[in-house]
């Protein structure tokens, strides 16, 4: 990027003082675009990046995927011209300060989630609140799906939960409406996918791992979890072990990490 700097009209701005450390210095070409990079001081850009980081963190609290359209409408506004620069820098900051990765889970519709870079560990279960209990339930369901070949009919999942004394038809003390939690909340949060099985009448539904589950955990992690509970070696399930090991070897290929150079839009590999 050009390092040329042009002295602007009324005195040195704070932005110019900061410009030295950023490769965002204004170039000589006077652009007509209302908010192109050239017309903005680095301080203004920093401010937008900081706003975007705050916005993403707030939205992520409820684990709801964030649409690009909403980011543009609520944060970027008339900074559209430098959207990709802002999101790239927000992604970098999220990593450096918060240990979070900004991931585009749907490159076609531009939907993002934040996932932790730090492996999830027992330490986070310090406070046995409703939230961690829900994650426990989710882990059980993800394990079940993996062991059943990565998908299972809805009825099979309910049957499995009933055996664990979590009846989807009965209001649960911690989970409340179990059916709603599993088919709506976990699905909205992208932990699970819930699809109609084609050509079924009456319609039948099945569950699969959602994009957030794929990113936040791995088949190997889940297999180790099961092995630990059953006090066996993960290799005891040879089919699943082979699959999990293959995934481990290919890790990182499924998603674009927005914060890495050349990530973001164009180069996005499509998820199949």
């Amino acid at each position: 990027m050009a390092q040329k700097r042009r002295s602007k009209g009324p005195g040195p701005s704070q932005g110019e003082l900061l410009a030295a450390e950023e490769d965002l210095a204004p170039t000589q070409s006077a652009s007509q675009a209302p908010r192109s990079l050239e017309r903005l001081s680095p301080a203004q850009v920093d401010q937008k990046v900081s706003e975007l980081v705050q916005y993403l963190l707030v939205k992520d609290q409820k684990k709801i995927p964030i649409k690009r359209a909403d980011i543009l409408k609520n944060v970027i506004k008339d900074y559209r011209g430098i959207y990709s620069e802002i999101i790239k820098r927000a992604g970098r900051t999220l990593q450096q300060v918060f240990g979070l990765q900004l991931v585009e889970i749907d490159p076609r519709n531009h939907v993002y989630i934040l996932v932790s870079n730090l492996p999830r560990l027992a330490v986070e279960n310090l406070k046995q609140d409703d939230c961690t209990a829900k994650l426990g339930l989710l882990t059980v369901i993800l394990s079940f799906l993996f062991m059943k070949g990565n998908a299972a009919k809805e009825s099979a999942v309910w049957e499995m939960l009933r055996r664990l004394r979590v009846d989807p038809g009965v209001r649960h003390e911690v989970f409340g409406d179990v059916k709603k939690l599993v088919t709506e909340e976990f699905v909205r949060q992208k932990y699970l996918e819930y699809n109609r099985v084609p050509h079924t009448d009456p319609p039948e539904f099945e569950f699969l791992w959602g994009a957030r589950a794929v990113k936040e955990t791995s088949k190997m992690q889940v297999l180790r979890f099961i092995a630990k509970i059953q006090n066996k070696d993960p290799r005891a399930w040879s089919t699943q072990y082979t699959e999990a090991a293959a995934e481990e070897a290919a890790v990182g290929g499924l998603f674009e990490d927005v914060s890495t150079p050349g990530g973001a839009s164009q180069g996005a590999r499509r998820r199949t």
Binding site: G99, L100, N117, L118, V123, E124, L126
Partner: peptide, 14 residues
């Protein structure tokens, strides 16, 4: 900042 700080922050954030 280390990963120790980041993890602390993440847990406190949640």
């Amino acid at each position: 900042m280390t990963d120790g700080h980041r993890r602390f922050l993440q847990v406190l954030m949640s």
